[in-house]
Design a protein around this nucleic acid. Structure first.
Lengths: 159, 159
DNA sequence: GGTGAAACTTCTAATAA
DNA sequence: TTATTAGAAGTTTCACC
């Protein structure tokens, strides 16, 4: 995948949008001493180039009753079943990410559940998929999410 | 953490905002046959209640030259060092999430890197942290992220 | 590329129901 | 709680640098 050229102004715009997507373009323009029209054009270009894939709300899942996070490593009977099993795992709504991995596991996924009981159900569902040999669960006792901004700054300082 | 009461209108609003945070409130209002003022009030309430924690851009990290994802399981010499090591791991900008976990590993994290070489550097950095006994790496060959919308719908259907 | 202004759209808070 | 309203604010386009 090719890199896309972003200049300092683009960086600054992304920097302001990344943790508040609804910040007015006029505010961005004021801070960067450019016109709102320019901000608009820049954002549009980054969207068209696919750098900005979209925007999303950050919800508090704990407040919605979902405070349980676990990672499940999946061992397959046979690697030829990878695609098949992956599709079935993806179809479970409580699975937030799934990966095909090298190393110990064939497939690796993250789940978000209400509680231990609920997690058990989800894990059993994965265990029951045809081709799954066994699974290994790691329960998250504490999650710390790194600011996207920091990675972004690091990336920009390298480009 | 307590659950927060959301009614059907709140659900619909979140549903429209979750994959496009910049959709005009007037559009939401039209679709839900309510006024834009009501949308405004509802969103504000959900923000105040902390259900909506914020909004963020979804960037294409591949296009920014970061196409390597791996999970690192960390074994500690002693669990009393957990906090100390976790803090050091979090301070690495390429670490996107870190967890304290039950099961095989003491700490578990996800990294985003440019390539294999770069990942090696990051892993060595983790290995070098005082208190880390050894690490185990799982390289992601393919990542599939589940739509937030689907989990949200599932949650709402239960409430 | 960028700007500034015009035309249009949306936001937001106060008021009323 | 919700709707209406109206002025303030933001977005988007475009002729011109």
């Amino acid at each position: 995948m090719a890199k896309f050229k972003l200049d300092e102004v683009d960086h600054q715009i992304l920097d302001m949008l990344i943790d508040n997507t609804r910040i007015p373009f006029t505010d961005i323009a004021k801070k960067l001493l450019i016109s709102a029209g320019t901000v608009h054009v820049r954002v549009k270009k980054m969207e068209e180039a696919g750098i900005i894939k979209g925007s999303s709300l950050t919800l508090d899942y704990k407040k919605l009753g979902y405070s349980f996070i676990a990672y499940i490593g999946v061992f397959l009977q046979n690697t030829s079943q990878t695609k098949f099993v992956l599709e079935r795992i993806e179809s479970i709504p409580y699975v937030t990410v799934a990966h095909i991995t090298t190393g110990k596991f064939n497939i690796f996924c993250k789940i978000r559940a209400k509680n231990t009981m609920h997690a058990k159900e989800i894990i059993f569902k994965i265990d029951d998929i045809e081709g799954v040999y066994r699974t290994e669960t790691m329960i998250s006792l504490e999650e710390s999410i790194n600011d996207k901004k920091r990675l972004m700054h690091t990336i920009f300082n390298e480009l």
